[in-house]
């Protein structure tokens, strides 16, 4: 495998980042690093602070304590235009308030590169076209964004992120509403971006098996703190997962990939496990 070209990526660093919502602490002293070319996962139960962390890095949530830097610069000192040129976001869901075409939506990704009243240049349109091709959405170019299925829409939103020509891409559970085909397509593309362009990717996700397959490293959050961090195989362990998610799982090894295979246990499955006196780890 050729060594990844990491010139296109930017490093994301948070140091002792804390955030309080009203009087409710959401993040407590969270320190993470994402290097160019890396796919880093943030896992944790609902309310553990994953989304807040991503929103702080993308400049949506302000007023954090500690330090958050992109390419060595403090996020609170970077204007929204400049930040959008180095960090792009693929959210879980996107509002589609007006019937823009998919191409128009992707061109919105050029916003931070354009000046004043300017209309999109040939180059902007070319970049949008390429982005739609990369996410396999060229055939949707002239379709109304409001009429697309969630899977199709997410490809367009991903293309919008690519059109920003970012050095880092933040993904907030981007495949939660998608079927398995779209899930792997989206993350295969993330991997491709990381290894070919050196883009750094930080993704929140719930699907532990996707995390095991795609993430280079993982931060496991619990109640706003980093509970465990490190290489994916070291973090996704039976003990860590059951502790953080407060739920029983059955852990196996995927004999195709050698990666971890995690299966949530229903009440019935737990009973069976107990009855047959089996270990929850194979």
């Amino acid at each position: 495998m050729p060594s990844p070209d990491t010139t296109g990526g930017v490093r994301i660093l948070t140091g002792d980042t804390s955030f309080t919502y009203g009087t409710e602490p959401v993040l407590r002293s969270v320190s993470i690093t994402v290097e160019p070319g890396e796919i880093v996962g943030i896992l944790g139960p609902n309310g553990s602070g994953k989304t807040t962390l991503l929103k702080i890095i993308s400049g949506v949530v302000k007023g954090y304590e500690g330090s958050v830097t992109v390419d060595g610069r403090e996020v609170r000192d970077i204007g929204p235009r400049e930040l959008a040129r180095s960090v792009a976001v693929v959210p879980q869901e996107t509002e589609t308030g007006l019937p823009f075409t998919a191409t128009e939506v992707v061109l919105m990704g050029r916003h931070a590169h354009m000046k004043g009243l300017a209309f999109e240049s040939e180059r902007d349109v070319e970049i949008a076209k390429t982005a739609l091709e990369r996410t396999g959405a060229s055939h949707l170019a002239s379709r109304n964004i409001q009429r697309l299925s969630s899977g199709e829409r997410q490809r367009v939103i991903f293309a919008r992120a690519l059109a920003q020509e970012p050095g880092a891409i933040l993904l907030d559970e981007p495949t939660s509403f998608l079927d398995i085909r779209y899930q792997v397509e989206i993350y295969d593309l993330v991997r491709q971006l990381a290894s070919e362009q050196g883009i750094s990717a930080l993704t929140a996700l719930h699907d532990l098996n996707l995390a095991a397959e795609y993430c280079d490293r993982i931060y496991l959050l619990k109640e706003g703190r980093v509970f465990a961090e490190g290489a994916t195989d070291d973090v996704l362990t039976y003990v860590n997962l059951t502790t953080v998610f407060e739920s029983d799982v059955y852990v196996d090894t995927n004999d195709l990939t050698g990666k971890l295979l995690v299966i949530p246990l229903s009440h019935r499955a737990k009973e069976k496990l107990k009855r047959e006196k089996r270990e929850p780890i194979r």
Binding site: K55, S58, G59, V60, P80, R81, E82, L83, A84, R85, A88, V89, P91, T94, E95, T96, G97, L98, F100, E104, V105, M108, G109, H111, A112, R160, Q164
Partner: peptide, 15 residues
């Protein structure tokens, strides 16, 4: 135009 895709979406493309 960008704000039609939600306030957060607008911030994320640089508004």
């Amino acid at each position: 135009n960008a704000m039609a895709m939600g306030e957060e979406g607008a911030i994320q493309v640089g508004v």
